[in-house]
Design a protein around this nucleic acid. Structure first.
Length: 603
RNA sequence: GCCUCGGUAGCUCAGUUGGAUAGAGCAACUGCCUUCUAAGCAGUAGGUCAUGGGUUCGAAUCCCGUCCGGGGUACCA
């Protein structure tokens, strides 16, 4: 067993050295926040930079002189520092090559470099994502949600948490009844089997059908002189749907059966899409099973005077003490509202698992909702209520603007994935790639590339921001894209295969002294990976991972272009470059895995 | 109205707790395959960081105002 080596980061060592230096030189102990240790900018000489300005006031000397004095001190105290240079107010330190090479060796050696393992104090985090309605198929908006949810789960795991992925399916309510009613009314012989239409799409079609008929009815009534509001509430199909919902809540057998059947179609369809997207769940909750629990919780709250009742017998929470408004929890007729089921779901989760932290991956239009939910759960006594984390992400917009289901301007998830695969297939044929692979292997690679492109495109942008998806342009395979990263990986794997063919074995005895600029850059970037994973976890941001991997493989491609690997005659250097390549491939893969993106061996 | 998030190159996006000359990709133009995969590499061009003030050695970043845009503010979900 290898003893556990506690490797101190060079930044940390330097930071305390600076503190020491300033204390000893100027008799003043600076605050840690004043000591800025950062990576030297690419266009400057040096590896680590210390900003001198904050100490000028203490030293009462020029920035240059202060920098020199601190630099000299560090040079004497920190072994890894080779030399330094002061440019303006910046102290640039050169770190010994040995240090970077040691870093490479450990990242090459450690199978889980940068990925934390579970420990004694592992926290259990539950991540809720996806959360679809069962009245229509998944679209691009859901894709962003699913990819973010899956990725953030992986990132939290990589930061040492135990993660339970969960999904709350909205399987009840008036919108589901609309699809059911349309099916009954305008073609009750349709099934996914006899129409050949995927179940969720069939139900979605019914939903659209309903809206078209309904709209026609409303228009007709308005033409007859009714006000719009009245017409909307009195259109025959709306009345029928309300009756259907009433029957559902009264457990009417026929209604429940139809509901089961149609939801079954939808689930089967969803499962296919989830599988294609490569996302999954450890536990799925259904709103039909949680909303009554929520209602009970609200009534308990009423009992315990946490909530109050108005004269019309509706139940409310007074959140004015928290700087929020009053919030309705049960309607005057006793039925539950949206937030009621969230309380119920929370309660069930609370009973089912020992959760330390709850993360909800839900769009930013629900910021207010989750602010309220946090307060309500806290009032009701759930320990993680107050600090639940709403992973609030921005919308996906199209060049034409917002996606609207009712206007048919949504990008369907299944269609999009198929289209991406077909683009990957054509692109491959055009480039004359993968001809040596079997049909099956080739298809699998097209799938990886297509999904890599889609996932990376979506995950590379800051989740908090709205993003634009242009179907015509977004399916790019060059530049800052998933396929670019996959391609670099395939290239490295190809080199490694050839090395193996030539019986060249990789060894961790790196016996070189000199490093080229590109080689050193790569070593420096590699060393950042663990920090990047932590950063991504702390900020709930797959984008941080994505941008890092891009940076890494971009640098690798420059290195690859400028240096021979297998043709290098010096065996030690050749070995170094092979280890370097293998490590880049490994880190890129493990980073992409955190994004849910697979890496092909060849492409 | 109030709350909230945003505005960086023609387009899509990065930009660390405030640090050096604001960076990538796409699109445009120009080079590089007899050599480990050209889905690559190199170069040219492209900016009043919405705007006006303030804080300071230093602001795309922090504070205040203004303009523009998204979202929220339901007995919808």
């Amino acid at each position: 067993m290898r003893p556990k080596i506690i490797k101190m980061k060079i930044e940390t060592i330097i930071q305390s050295a600076v503190q020491e230096a300033v204390t000893e030189l100027y008799y003043f102990s600076p605050d840690v926040t004043q000591i800025q240790v950062q990576n030297t900018k690419k266009d400057q000489k040096g590896d680590i930079t210390i900003v001198v300005f904050p100490f000028v006031r203490i030293s009462k000397k020029s920035p240059e002189e202060t920098g020199r004095e601190i630099g000299n001190y560090i040079l004497k105290k920190v072994n890894s520092v080779e030399s330094f240079e002061v440019v303006k107010g910046f102290l640039n330190l050169n770190i010994k090559n040995e240090y970077w090479i040691n870093g490479l060796v450990s990242s090459f050696n450690e199978s889980t470099f940068g990925i934390a393992e579970h420990s004694e104090d592992t926290k259990t985090v539950m991540v809720e994502y996806s959360s679809p309605n069962t009245n229509k198929p998944l679209h691009l908006g859901h894709i962003r949600n699913n990819l973010l949810g899956y990725s953030i789960s992986e990132i939290l795991k990589a930061n040492g948490n135990k993660v339970i992925k969960t999904n709350i399916v909205n399987d009840r309510g008036i919108h589901i009844c609309k699809s059911m009613y349309a099916w009954q009314q305008w073609g009750s012989d349709r099934t996914p089997e006899n129409t050949g239409i995927k179940g969720d799409h069939l139900v979605g079609e019914c939903y659209v059908e309903f809206n078209n008929h309904y709209k026609a009815e409303v228009d007709e009534l308005v033409k007859q002189g009714m006000t719009e509001e009245l017409a909307e509430n009195n259109a025959p199909s709306m009345l029928a749907v309300r009756e259907m919902l009433r029957k559902w809540e009264a457990h009417d057998l026929e209604t429940i059966q139809l509901w089961h059947t149609m939801n079954g179609w939808v689930y089967k369809g969803f499962d296919e899409t989830y599988k294609k997207l490569g996302v999954d769940f450890d536990k799925i909750y259904y709103e039909s099973e949680t909303y009554l629990v929520g209602k009970d919780e609200v009534l308990r709250g009423l009992d315990e005077n946490i909530f109050f009742q108005k004269d019309d017998s509706s139940v409310w929470a007074d959140l004015t003490g928290e700087g929020l408004d009053q919030k309705i929890l049960l309607r005057s007729d006793g039925t539950s509202v949206y937030i009621t089921q969230d309380i119920g779901t929370a309660k069930m989760r609370y009973n089912d698992f020992s959760i330390d932290k709850m993360v909800y991956v839900v769009g930013n239009e629900q910021n207010y909702h989750f602010q309220i939910l946090a307060v309500l759960l806290d009032k009701l006594g759930f320990k993680w209520g107050k600090d639940l984390y709403h992973f609030s992400y921005g919308m996906v917009e199209l060049p034409s603007g917002k996606m609207k289901s009712r206007e048919g301007t949504v990008v369907d998830a299944d269609d999009l994935i198929e289209e991406m695969i077909s683009v990957a297939r054509n692109m491959s044929a055009e480039l004359g790639k993968l001809e040596s692979l079997s049909q099956e292997e080739a298809e699998n690679t097209f799938r990886m590339i297509a999904l890599g492109a889609l996932k990376y495109f979506i995950l590379k942008v800051d989740p908090r921001k709205n993003m634009l998806f242009n179907p015509a342009e977004s399916i790019d395979f060059n530049g800052n894209t998933g396929p670019f990263i996959q391609y670099t990986h395939a290239r490295i794997k190809s080199v490694l295969r050839k090395a193996a063919e030539k019986q060249i074995e990789l060894t961790i005895d790196i016996d070189i002294k000199e490093l080229s600029t590109k080689e050193k850059e790569l070593l420096k970037t590699i060393s950042l990976f663990p920090e990047v994973v932590k950063d991504a976890g702390a900020n709930y941001s797959p984008a941080i991972i994505a941008n890092f991997i891009y940076e890494l493989v971009k640098e690798y491609n420059q290195f690859y272009h400028d240096h021979s690997i297998l043709l290098e005659e010096d065996a030690a250097r050749r070995n170094f470059r092979l280890v370097l390549s293998a490590t880049v491939a490994k880190i890129a893969s493990s980073g992409m895995k955190l994004l849910g993106i697979e890496m092909p061996e060849r492409m």
